[in-house]
């Protein structure tokens, strides 16, 4: 069973629209009533500052081919867990605007469709997982919730998101469809740049 490029892009568009739809909610900890694993999933999916960099990474890994996509599938959740554990132990999140830089760097890489070796993509994946996992862990610690199970929920979501988006990009064959992916990357990078300006504007 196969799908045309238009159908795949329409599916991606709907996925992004759905991701934006509940974004009206804040990125605070979510209580689903279904237990800590689902709370972790809910928290992650309602945190656009985590979701969009992960999507950007998955798009970039997909643009680079099957191997980086496969590596990201496993390294990102594990790095996220390691970062989350560190955040749980260390406590307060850093003041440095990590999210802005994640948007800017990963979105910029997608927009430029930069040809990087697989090992560099894997290093970027680990870095993203450690940094954002740390922020997650620190947030869970402050909330005093069942952090390990919540992190488990986040890891499962990461696995699914990376699988979906990297596979989507890998399946694109027509040149213009890759351009659409690059445009999405440029939008993420532009958002990161504005976000950075915003954080400097607020602190300045």
């Amino acid at each position: 069973m196969s799908f045309s490029s238009k159908q795949k892009l329409a599916a991606a568009g709907v996925a992004v629209a759905l991701a934006l739809s509940p974004s009206a909610a804040r990125a605070h900890l979510v209580t689903t009533g279904l237990g800590p694993v689902y709370d972790g999933i809910g928290h992650f999916m309602l945190s656009l500052d985590d979701v969009l960099p992960v999507i950007a990474l998955a798009l970039f890994a997909g643009l680079r081919g099957p191997a980086p996509g496969r590596h990201a599938l496993f390294t990102l959740p594990l790095a996220w867990l390691a970062g989350g554990m560190t955040g749980l132990l260390a406590g307060n999140p850093p003041v440095f605007p990590i999210t802005s830089f994640s948007f800017l760097v990963l979105g910029g890489l997608v927009a430029a469709d930069l040809s990087l070796p697989s090992v560099v993509v894997t290093l970027l994946t680990i870095l993203l997982g450690l940094m954002h996992g740390f922020l997650n862990g620190a947030a869970f610690r402050q909330a005093g919730s069942d952090a390990l199970l919540e992190l488990l929920g986040v890891m499962a979501t990461l696995f699914v998101l990376v699988a979906l988006f990297a596979a989507l990009v890998l399946s694109l064959r027509r040149p213009w469809t890759r351009i659409v992916v690059r445009v999405a990357g440029s939008w993420i990078a532009a958002t990161g740049l504005l976000l950075l300006g915003w954080s400097l504007h607020k602190t300045g």
């Binding site: 934006l20 974004s23 656009l48 504005l194 976000l195 915003w198 954080s199």
Partner: peptide, 8 residues
């Protein structure tokens, strides 16, 4: 900031 930037 994030949502405003995204919308923009």
């Amino acid at each position: 900031g994030l949502l405003y930037s995204l919308g923009f």
